[in-house]
Design a protein around this nucleic acid. Structure first.
Length: 730
RNA sequence: GCUGCUGUAGCUCAGUGGUAGAGCACUUCCUUGGUAAGGAAGAGGUCAUGGGUUCAAGUCCCAUCAGCAGCUCCA
């Protein structure tokens, strides 16, 4: 007999062959029908398999999962992925299955097949899925040893599964399979008892994906879908997707005249139109003011710098491919650059090619008396690099830190001057891959609200604490109070980082210590660090539950070393400072893009590009309206007057659609009494008020940076996460 | 960068090989009004760019550029 302990602590006994479904049936038939999966400790298991196969514990701490449990949803979706794959295999020939995991709010399955899937196929696939769901066939599980499993996958014609068993699952002796009707899939599970539990599902999109996420690997077709326990839940989710779409900053940015991106300027290069620029200026002024109060000193640095500067910092070699190529003062610079590249490449250069390059260089007026094709490759490269150093090459700056490091070096530094906090809204350029560009969120020219703090190692923790506090203050002032911090550490297995083990250990330990002391919600993530140091990244949840990576604070013991930064300590000896890189907004482009989506374009009064629109009832009151406009402008409000010969209803409609927070309707009645009929974009007509009272009200709202409206937080949309649950890996 | 889809007026889109369209926005005129669209007229297009097929191309084919979705990347 099995001893089973239920969540309320009670113990029940069942025969050795009992499943979680049997346990549920023992409690009640309605429960048995509702059970989707079960949980033993933290492990989710199949409700339809004998418990004895799944655990050695006694008593077994069993929790039954029904459609009320979020974890059950994950199981449902995984099974839905199987149903979808089954439908696709019924409809198309030669389908090779890859992976079909769950993701937040849904699932996908990757296929290798000749037919190009498109949205036109969705109806047929969904219809086939509906058939499978209606048949309500049970899921069954079985295991096999390696050779049998490989044989089975070969018999099924599943080459990718065979490859996965041989590589990814090389350490597994036993491999699990699930069968549902004619469909058999290598799978760890768990699954729902039968397909009939899927009450709502929908295919969402089709896209390319790589086999095992490797960009060099085979290109597969990925079908995305979602599944739910009720069609109402599904509809809520689809509505939520619509809501996110409605907030798309690219659409709103166009509609509201905030920014513009066009190919004649260049992709990924953002033109800030007056209204968008206004929002940015307000944010910059707000932050600059705050930083001045906190002991930062503004600096300016140029948009380009010599390549050697970035060779020193390490950015140039490390990010070569995602930078705009160097600017050469000497015409032949590009030739020499390519020459070095070829020498460094695996293929190298043939004697003939070398000759032709030499000739070309000569034509361009390059003299290389020391270059001898008989020298070894390293010597030849060194000769060419020596030429490069004598002939300036510049980089459009991809980062501000090297410039700021040079500012530190501009004069001898004493410990008495530390911490030195240099701030700059620094515009940098990065050649992001074309597929990455996305409105303002991912651009090729961006302005960081950058600053670098140079301090002693004793000051590190306090400075770091202050920057964390600053970032929180800044986020909360725009109503972003739901965030957590990701402690981004190096990947111990990778060699892409610069600096000593010792420096890294110091930096990582310091960050962790401060975060622990602060009591903030944080989690560590390996492999997410910058190449020169660990980071604390702010992951911010917006009002509809989406997660954004915004501000960052980075601790850096390495660039000071690379730039040989020093200060004189109280002991009259030279010491190396520590650098803290930090940007509470991240970049102005990304931050404003996010804000547009967060507020759905309706900025709070303090950030609204236009705060008040004055609407004269007819042209007869235009003069009074303009007089009000002057009064409002005099107290710093951003106002315009709609003097068109349109009806007030039309003017109101336009102002509403432009998301202007307040409207001031003025007609003969108001002109007579010196009043304003104030209309609130959210509340509607507030009635006639004396001018002074309106000015007072609006000024207060601006000063307090009141946030009056954000969307209700959705219960349906789960927070987006960087990684999927990891529950179903194969 | 890869895979797929898309590119027609300022915006949203219709137009499946035979004379380039609608709504909104814009301009002018009429209307002078009380809290989400008053009326009329007008102007606006090398149909992304470059090639090709065809008697004939917005429409079919190829390339390039750009956008979108996903993957990969992100100092």
């Amino acid at each position: 007999m099995l001893q089973i302990q239920l969540p309320d602590g009670s113990l029940v006994e069942h025969p050795d062959s009992a499943t979680a479904l049997d346990v549920a049936a023992g409690i009640g038939s309605r429960l048995a029908k509702a059970v989707v999966a079960a949980k033993v400790n933290d492990r989710i298991i199949d409700a339809f398999r004998p418990l004895a196969e799944l655990t050695d514990l006694s008593p077994i701490p069993l929790q039954l999962l029904t459609d009320k449990d979020p974890e059950a949803l994950d199981v449902l979706r995984h099974s839905s992925a199987h149903v979808m794959a089954r439908a696709v295999m019924r409809l198309f020939d030669g389908v090779s299955l890859a992976f079909g995991p769950t993701i937040n709010n849904g699932f996908y399955y990757d296929f290798d097949l000749d037919h190009k899937l498109s949205e036109d196929d969705f109806a047929a696939i969904e219809k086939e899925m509906a058939k499978i769901v209606k048949e309500s066939e049970p899921f069954e599980q079985f295991s096999m040893d390696r050779s049998q499993a490989i044989q089975l996958c070969q018999d099924l014609g599943q080459a990718l599964k065979v490859e996965h068993i041989e590589t990814g699952l090389a350490e597994h002796d036993q491999l699990g399979f699930y069968r549902q009707g004619e469909f058999v899939d290598l799978c760890r599970g768990p699954h729902i008892p039968d397909a009939g539990k899927i009450k709502a599902f929908k295919l969402l999109s089709v896209a390319g994906a790589y086999w095992k996420g490797d960009a060099k690997g085979k290109q597969l077709q990925r079908l995305y879908g979602t599944a739910w326990f009720s069609s109402k839940d599904q509809q809520d989710y689809l509505d939520q997707l619509e809501e996110a779409k409605r907030r798309d900053h690219r659409v709103l940015g166009k509609k509201l005249g905030l920014f513009h991106i066009n190919p004649e300027v260049g992709s990924g290069l953002c033109l800030w139109l007056p209204k968008g620029a206004r929002v940015r200026v307000l944010l910059e002024d707000f932050l600059r003011n705050e930083l001045l109060n906190r002991g930062y000193e503004p600096v300016y640095s140029p948009h380009i710098g010599r390549v050697e500067l970035y060779e020193t910092s390490g950015h140039f070699p490390y990010y070569r491919d995602s930078q705009f190529p160097p600017l050469f003062v000497e015409q032949a610079g590009g030739l020499i650059d390519a020459w070095i590249d070829r020498l460094q490449s695996e293929a190298g250069l043939s004697a003939d090619e070398e000759m032709r390059l030499s000739d070309a260089a000569e034509v361009l007026g390059v003299e290389l008396p020391d270059y001898k094709p008989t020298d070894d490759v390293a010597t030849r490269i060194a000769t060419l690099q020596a030429w490069q150093r004598q002939h300036e090459r510049y980089l459009v700056k991809p980062m501000n830190c090297p410039h700021h490091a040079q500012m530190f070096r501009a004069q001898p530094r004493s410990y008495k001057q530390l911490p030195l906090r240099l701030m700059e809204f620094g515009t940098v350029y990065r050649y992001e891959q074309t597929g990455e560009l996305n409105g303002m969120l991912r651009v090729r020219g961006l302005t960081q609200d950058d600053a670098h703090i140079f301090c002693t190692s004793e000051q590190v923790e306090e400075e770091f604490r202050n920057t964390i506090e600053l970032t929180r203050f800044v986020l909360e002032s725009v109503g972003l109070s739901d965030y957590r911090i990701q402690l981004s550490l190096r990947d111990p297995k990778s060699d892409k980082y610069v600096g000593s083990e010792e420096n890294w250990n110091k930096a990582e330990a310091a960050l962790r210590r401060v975060l622990e002391q602060s009591g903030l919600n944080f989690h560590a993530e390996e492999g997410e660090a910058a190449f020169y140091g660990p980071k604390a990244d702010f992951m911010v949840r917006d009002c509809i539950g989406r997660q954004w990576q915004l501000g960052t604070v980075q601790l850096d013991y390495n660039l000071p070393e690379r730039f040989k930064l020093e200060y004189v300590g109280p002991d009259n000896a030279m010491h190396r400072p520590v650098m803290i890189h930090r940007a509470p907004f991240g970049s102005m482009e990304r931050f404003v893009g996010m804000l547009i989506e967060h507020f759905a374009g309706a900025f709070p009064l303090w950030l609204a590009p236009e705060q008040v629109r004055i609407l004269p009832l007819s042209e007869k009151t235009n003069e009074y309206a303009l007089q009000i406009e002057q009064q409002m402008k005099a107290v710093g409000l951003r106002v315009s007057t709609d003097v068109r010969g349109a009806k007030v209803q039309a003017k109101i409609r336009d102002a509403q659609l432009e998301l202007i927070p307040y409207m001031a309707v003025v007609g003969p009645k108001e002109a007579e009494t010196g009043a304003i009929a104030l209309r609130d974009r959210l509340e509607g007509d507030l009635g006639a008020l004396p001018i002074e009272q309106v000015l007072q009200k609006l000024q207060t709202e601006v000063q307090q940076r009141t946030i009056r409206q954000v969307a209700k937080h959705s219960e349906i949309l789960e927070p987006t996460q960087e990684t999927s649950s990891g529950l179903h890996e194969y």
